[in-house]
Design a protein around this nucleic acid. Structure first.
Lengths: 136, 136
DNA sequence: CTTACTGCAAACCATTTGCACGATC
DNA sequence: GATCGTGCAAATGGTTTGCAGTAAG
């Protein structure tokens, strides 16, 4: 289970009840919650936790590289605890559901040198768009 | 030049001075302006144009599929008039500059059936991240 | 002449911040 | 006991909306 929490602890992260709850709530496979959803679930376990703390905590986890920020282009950013395993996202244009997917091949390799304009490429994110079985 | 404007006119779009100015300002290659930048440039040509109209107009062009919304994950959305030619984006992690790029191969084809979870895939967006020559 | 676009200002929503209090090392 | 995290509430920035006025077809 709490893979994420363990990783954070190993990095000498100062541990408080709020931070622990945020990490626990966010952890898992195919989890892509908004800050507000994280807050709602955190409140269920720790009623006094504030939105500001949730935002701060998520921001720190992103800065540490343990959590990924996903802008699916809707309104609010979503947070993906699975930052360690490279994966891409499949987003339903109907209901906004997100799945993690693993395409074949390395997208970075597909970008020819002539198309790099002198940039040093450090990563690539792919968002597949489509309709899920329920929305089709 | 005003390819975008022409396309919009062909679709029977009601033409007003404001809309024309927005389309003109936005058109071109490698153009990725924020709504606010569009407004600033539009004001230079048509001083009374309001932010609300710029937002409405951009939203309509996006709904018509003639303009692409690009969420580079920074603060404001950017608008790309080049919705007709499939291309991907290269974003500088330093200064936020954007370049259009054309990778080899079709990213959709790289997603195996087993990874589609019953979704009907309609498109894929790739964002390459890196440092531009100036920021490196 | 009718319909639809525009401008204004106020509303909205997600997120950030300043600051005093409280908990951790 | 010094430092750092937390909570509150207010501020911010981007975007949307309601409504009266105005222009396009």
């Amino acid at each position: 289970m709490s893979d994420l929490l363990e990783r954070l602890r190993d990095r000498g992260w100062r541990l408080t009840s709020q931070r622990r709850v945020v990490a626990e709530v966010l952890d898992g496979e195919h989890v892509h919650l908004t800050a507000d959803e994280v807050h709602a679930r955190a409140v269920a376990r720790l009623p006094e936790i504030s939105r500001a703390t949730v935002y701060n905590t998520l921001g720190e986890m992103v800065a540490l590289g343990e959590v990924l920020e996903v802008a699916t282009d809707g309104r609010a950013k979503r947070y993906d605890p699975n930052a360690r395993h490279s994966h891409q996202h499949l987003v339903c244009s109907g209901c906004g559901a997100i799945r993690d997917v693993h395409p074949d091949g390395d997208p970075i390799a597909a970008l020819p040198a002539a198309e790099r304009f002198g940039f040093t490429i450090s990563g690539a994110e792919i968002t597949y768009r489509g309709l899920c079985p329920d929305c089709a």
